[in-house]
């Protein structure tokens, strides 16, 4: 081997780990396929919700009043379903490493394990935010076009709705990635994320028992729904956002703690 001259670009484990994770994210096809699936699904769901609104408003029952809907609400509704795809995007970056054995390479390259968890989160956060905004924008526009005259295209509210969905997608995705470090298998992590983000909050939130309503509001899915719909009961949107941040940070801390202790 000839004497290779290697000059470091950056000294520092964490920035290097972030660059590596960024490369890893975009050099597997599953990331791109997931984005395509999320984009397609949210556009179709947005169209369906728009048609649904138009149908409801033109087939009013006695005593019902037709209402215009801000287009951003289509995005907020669609994310309830599409969040599972977005959670899969985030958690697969972790579980695919365990499924393929590449985790052993990753930990050899970056032996400081908290850096690995942090680097993945640092790469995922902006991507998830952008993913959420794009998905919400597509659903909103698709819903707005199919709803026709019943759509309200007011810009300021639309932008706020998009940013809210982006925030929720980031929090839900990071939470999913965090627990993925602890669960490790794709099916297992997806099940936990599906239950906590969608199923359990949906079931409990409809209850007339206050204790169940509170439980739902404190779970990530319920907090997300309350945050996105601007609900004030039982928690204000700001407090719901705090609950979401707590789940994301808590999930990542759990993941980092488990990874640190376990042999690769």
């Amino acid at each position: 081997m000839s004497a290779a001259v290697i000059t470091p670009r950056i000294i520092g484990g964490l920035p290097n780990a972030v660059r590596s994770e960024w490369t890893k994210l975009w050099t597997v096809r599953s990331s791109w396929l997931n984005l395509a699936a999320g984009v397609l699904l949210s556009t179709l769901l947005g169209m369906q919700y728009g048609w649904g609104l138009a149908y409801d408003n033109s087939h009013l029952g006695p005593g019902e009043v037709a209402e215009k809907q801000p287009i951003g609400h289509f995005g907020a509704s669609v994310i309830l379903i599409v969040q599972v795809v977005i959670a899969a995007f985030a958690l697969l970056t972790v579980t695919s490493e365990y499924a393929t054995g590449s985790i052993r390479s990753t930990l050899q390259w970056t032996p400081v394990r908290r850096y690995v968890v942090l680097a993945k989160a640092a790469v995922l956060a902006p991507v998830l935010f952008g993913y959420g905004v794009v998905v919400a924008a597509l659903a909103s526009v698709a819903g707005g076009l199919t709803a026709g005259s019943w759509a309200d295209w007011e810009a300021a509210g639309f932008v706020t709705d998009l940013l809210s969905v982006g925030f929720y997608a980031t929090a839900a995705g990071l939470f999913s990635a965090g627990i993925a470090w602890a669960v490790r298998s794709t099916a297992g992590t997806l099940t936990v994320a599906f239950l906590l983000l969608l199923v359990v909050p949906l079931m409990m939130g409809q209850s007339s028992l206050r204790a169940l309503v509170w439980t739902s509001a404190l779970l990530p899915g319920g907090a997300g729904q309350n945050y996105l719909t601007g609900a004030t009961d039982p928690l204000s949107p700001v407090l719901s956002a705090v609950v979401l941040i707590a789940w994301a940070v808590g999930g990542l801390a759990l993941g980092a703690g488990v990874l640190k202790r376990r042999d690769a």
Binding site: A4, I6, N16, E21, K24, T27, V28, R104, S105
Partner: peptide, 30 residues
């Protein structure tokens, strides 16, 4: 080299090594 199979099978050989190089600040030309 402990386990030649410890990599993502759907990532290209070059992609694997580029990610590896970036993780330690090694120039990609290497």
């Amino acid at each position: 080299l402990l386990d030649a199979k410890a990599l993502h099978p759907r990532r290209s050989a070059r992609g694997h090594l580029v990610a590896m190089a970036r993780s330690n600040g090694v120039p990609v030309s290497r």
